[in-house]
Design a protein around this nucleic acid. Structure first.
Length: 376
DNA sequence: AACTCGGGGTT
DNA sequence: AACCCAGAGTT
C-alpha cells in the first residue's frame, strides 16, 4: 500500500543540481506535452482523466475527456446523470466498469461527503474504482500531497533505472515504490510524478527507447548493460479467434435490442440478439439456435447483411450480421429487451462492434430517404 | 498470484 | 500480428 514519505525520507535531503530528480524535473519543464488535464488543479477533472487513462493511451482519451467535461462539468452533474447517459459518453472507450464506478463514486461523494472529493488517502481509496494509483495520483496532482505514483510508465522507467530483471510483479512494485519514495523531492512532488510518467511515455518507451536523449541515462542500470529493450520482460498472452452471428430483427421501423447483464464482459451495454458459432455449426445454424434460445422464436428467412471484424485484447471477433424474418414477432417481455427506432438507438450505449452495425443501419436508412425524396 | 475487463495505437 | 497502455476488482 502506498504511504507518504516519512520524516527521515523527506528531511535534510540534498538535491544537488546533478541529482536524478533535478535532471528529470528540468527535462519535464522543457519537454512536457500540453494535455487538457494538465491545465487544471480541479480534483474532479484530474480524477476523470486518471480513470480514463487507465490502460488507455493519451490520444484515445483526449476527445472523450473533452466531451465528458462538457456533459458532466462537475461532480454534481455526474451524480445527477442517469447511468445510460454516462455509459453512452463512455461508448468505445472500453472497460465500462470504470464509468459505472466513477458514476457510483460521484453519487457517494455528493451524498456522504458534501460533494467534495476526499483529500485523505484512506477515504478516497475506499470509493469504487479508486485504487492505489488513482488515489496517489489525484492526491498528488490536485492536492500536492507527496504520494509517489506507480503506473506502467513509472514501472518501466524504474525497473530500467534500477536494473530489475524479469516481469513486473507485486514484490518488485513494492521495492520500486520504496526506492522512489527515497528520492521523492520535498517540493513539486506533483511535477516529479508527472515527469516520471512523461519520461516513460516519450523517452523510456517500451520499444525503441530514446536513451540517447534521456536526461538520466547516466543513472540507468539497464542502459549500462544494454538491457533496456528487455526490461520489463513481456507478459505472456493468449489470443483466439471467435465467430459470432448477429440477428437484425425489425418491425415497423423499430429494431430489437437487448441489454447485457450488469456483470461481466461489456456489462450493461446493449446489443442485437446473437452469439458465438459453436464447433461443427454453420453460421445459419448458429443464428437459428441463438435466436431460438434468446427469443424463443424460429427464424423463417435470413440474409447476410454485412461482415465486421473487431479486435479485443484476448480475442478477435468476426461478426456475421444477418437480417432476419421471424416466424412471429417476439414480445419484449423484460425491461432488458426493447424495440427501438433508429433515432432512439443513438441514445443507447453499444460495444464498438455493435456501434458499427448501428451506423450501418443509419447509413442504409438515410440512403433510402434520399432515394425517396429525390425520386428515380 | 492469477484472471477479467475493451479498444485503439504502435511497431 | 504482437504488444502495450496514467489499473482495479475478483477469485
Amino acid at each position: 500500500m502506498n504511504r507518504l514519505p516519512n520524516r527521515a525520507e523527506l528531511m535534510d535531503r540534498k538535491e544537488p543540481d546533478g541529482s536524478l530528480p533535478r535532471k528529470i524535473g528540468r527535462w519535464y519543464r522543457t519537454h512536457r506535452r500540453r494535455l487538457p488535464w494538465r491545465e487544471t488543479k480541479d480534483p474532479y477533472k484530474i480524477w476523470v482523466s486518471e480513470v480514463m487513462l487507465q490502460q488507455t493511451t493519451v490520444n484515445a482519451v483526449i476527445p472523450y475527456y473533452v466531451r465528458w467535461l462538457e456533459l458532466f462539468p462537475d461532480i454534481q452533474a455526474l451524480a445527477r446523470a442517469p447511468l445510460r447517459r454516462v455509459l453512452k459518453a463512455w461508448e468505445g472507450l472500453g472497460y465500462y466498469q470504470r464509468a459505472r464506478n466513477l458514476h457510483q463514486a460521484a453519487r457517494t461523494i455528493c451524498r456522504k461527503h458534501g460533494g467534495s472529493i476526499p483529500a485523505e488517502f484512506e477515504e478516497f481509496i475506499a470509493l469504487p474504482g479508486v485504487g492505489p494509483y488513482i488515489a496517489a495520483a489525484v492526491l498528488s496532482l490536485a492536492f500536492d500531497k507527496p504520494y509517489p505514483v506507480l503506473d506502467a510508465n513509472v514501472r518501466r522507467v524504474g525497473m530500467r533505472l534500477y536494473g530489475f530483471q524479469g516481469k513486473a510483479n507485486a514484490r518488485a512494485d513494492a521495492v520500486l515504490l520504496a526506492r522512489i519514495r527515497g528520492i521523492f523531492p520535498v517540493e513539486n512532488g506533483a511535477d516529479f510524478n508527472q515527469a516520471l510518467m512523461e519520461l516513460g511515455a516519450l523517452i523510456c518507451r517500451p520499444k525503441n527507447p530514446g536513451c540517447l536523449l534521456c536526461p538520466v541515462q547516466s543513472f540507468c542500470r539497464a542502459y549500462q548493460s544494454g538491457e533496456q529493450e528487455v526490461i520489463p520482460a513481456p507478459k505472456s498472452r493468449s489470443f483466439q479467434q471467435i465467430e459470432t452471428v448477429v440477428g437484425i430483427i425489425s418491425d415497423q421501423g423499430k429494431y430489437l435490442i437487448q441489454q447485457r447483464p450488469a456483470q461481466g464482459l461489456l456489462a450493461g451495454l446493449w446489443e442485437f440478439p446473437g452469439g458465438k458459432r459453436e464447433k461443427g455449426e454453420t453460421l445459419r445454424e448458429a443464428l437459428r439456435r441463438e435466436i431460438k434460445e434468446e427469443l424463443g422464436v424460429e427464424v423463417r428467412r435470413e440474409r447476410l447483411l454485412l461482415k465486421l471484424r473487431h479486435a479485443y485484447t484476448r480475442f478477435q471477433v468476426e461478426l456475421f450480421v444477418f437480417e432476419c424474418e421471424l416466424d412471429r414477432s417476439p414480445l419484449p417481455r423484460s425491461p432488458n429487451r426493447r424495440w427501438v427506432g433508429l433515432r432512439a438507438l443513438k441514445r443507447y450505449p453499444f460495444p464498438s462492434g455493435s456501434a458499427q452495425i448501428v451506423r450501418f443501419l443509419e447509413d442504409r436508412d438515410s440512403e433510402k430517404q434520399k432515394r425517396v425524396s429525390v425520386g428515380p
